[in-house]
Nucleic acid binder design. Structure first.
Lengths: 157, 157, 157, 157
DNA sequence: TTTT
DNA sequence: TTTT
């Protein structure tokens, strides 16, 4: 039985382009570095900033999407869990690493649905890039269908 | 494309036993009423309590588990999203309803893994009920296997 | 004693400009309408979208900031709690309203630190608008000071 | 300006009694070790458990409450943020530590409002300990006062 | 009523 | 190493 909740919610900017590797089985594993900055007043009344750099990992399908769409500087929402790892380095020393294992990701700001052109969104890209064409007629929030209309596993939003 | 995050996290107690219905397709739909109480000081310095009653719905497999394990009074963690519904009553009046559509649930407190005995945990149960055995030898967080050991879709915790 | 957790996390776009009112005591109360859209496949395999419109309220200092900086279309992060209200309309009918009471807000995307020029970011604004000038030398995450260096209420980030 | 969200939500059990220290300024700093366990199926279809041990710190008033009420084994809800620290050990080696800086805490299960009797809830306590009195007559959610009734900083729940 |  |  699972016991406990281990949930992390981050909104931050990428410090560099994502790195994607593949397992023997062919699963994508994408790693990014995500910055979150907070501010507080110190005892002298001055604003003090502090930035945390989160090591975030995306696996499988999400790893492929992250590798394709994320780029240095992008702002992103990440939901996942904390994982503490302990391993022995080549020098025989024990080392610790903390990672955020993402299970949801969403790009923020503009240009969200657009696949990234290459390292760091190089701007030499031709102007003829096709429009994202993702128009959508927003569904009005109407009444739910009566229960009998549901099919199996037909879970509403 | 999904746009936006709509996330609700609740920890509260059930106001009554869950109600489970089934769709034509056989999917379980369990509804519970969950109370969360908060406190604040009013302008006279007195503590003021306020309780929100959340209407929480569980679908499918989670609906079956909720119907089987939850009981009035139990404390529970729920994660889900808000859904606002609008429908027309039998009197022709428009009505609004807000629901939390759960996608994760975890029972809290003791006796967590124990199926519920019946309505409201009937206390005629023999006193000899074995202890919940909540002890747990936490697994030590050891090093992750090297990446090449992963098989497809073998996503680590 | 507070009992329970009632937490909402939203990332969405504003459907219109915020409305700010003031209480007799002079406290700002700003209301916005926030859209979150999700997608799922229906039983025919087609993508179905659904948009929830959240009524979000900001009070006090946060209400002033929200009224000044938010504008129609902006993407925003909101954290708060759900509040269900029941009141009697002028027709004697009971009515229900669900609101998100915000206790944290953060603007997303570009132009974050810039005060809004007026209704819906009117673009007739002169090009000479001064630069936001919010540069910052990111603090390197260094070691925490030894505990004895802390002063009272000097809570680290 | 703060940029980013760094939020952690944990529900877990304490691995041992909390440790409280005080800064020169007299601020309480309480540290606990919190376990969260998750389960997944491995490629052979067997359930694999994994436990993360979170190092959680409470400061100030919250640190005093945590030191007084928490005990080994207790189940607790914690909300806070991740902080990565890097410091140089006495051997000159760089070391890393990840901590959760709590800004909200709530005890779960029964006996929530009861101060802890000593290390690990010693069971020599007399059997006549009064019932936790966990009953609660939930306040009915009534209509909010009209806005003009609010005084300054009189923020509703 | 928003956004891509 | 990001962002405004």
């Amino acid at each position: 039985m699972a016991r406990g909740i281990n949930k992390v919610i981050l909104v931050g900017n990428l410090g560099n382009d994502p790195e994607t590797k593949y397992t023997q089985g062919g699963m994508a594993v994408t790693t990014v570095s995500l910055a979150t900055t907070s501010v507080r007043k110190d005892r002298d009344g001055n604003n003090q900033e502090r930035t945390e750099w989160h090591r975030v990992k995306f696996f499988g399908k999400l790893g492929e999407i992250a590798g394709e769409y994320l780029r240095k500087g992008r702002q992103v929402y990440v939901e996942g869990s904390i994982r503490y790892d302990k391993f022995t380095g080549q020098d025989g020393q024990e080392r610790y690493m903390t990672e955020i294992i993402a299970d949801e990701m969403q790009m923020l700001g503009s240009g969200e649905g657009r696949p990234a052109g290459g390292p760091s969104e190089r701007s030499e890209r031709p102007a003829s890039r096709p429009a994202p064409a993702q128009r959508r007629e927003p569904t009005s929030s109407s009444a739910p269908p009566p229960m009998d209309d549901f099919a199996d596993d037909d879970i509403p939003f």
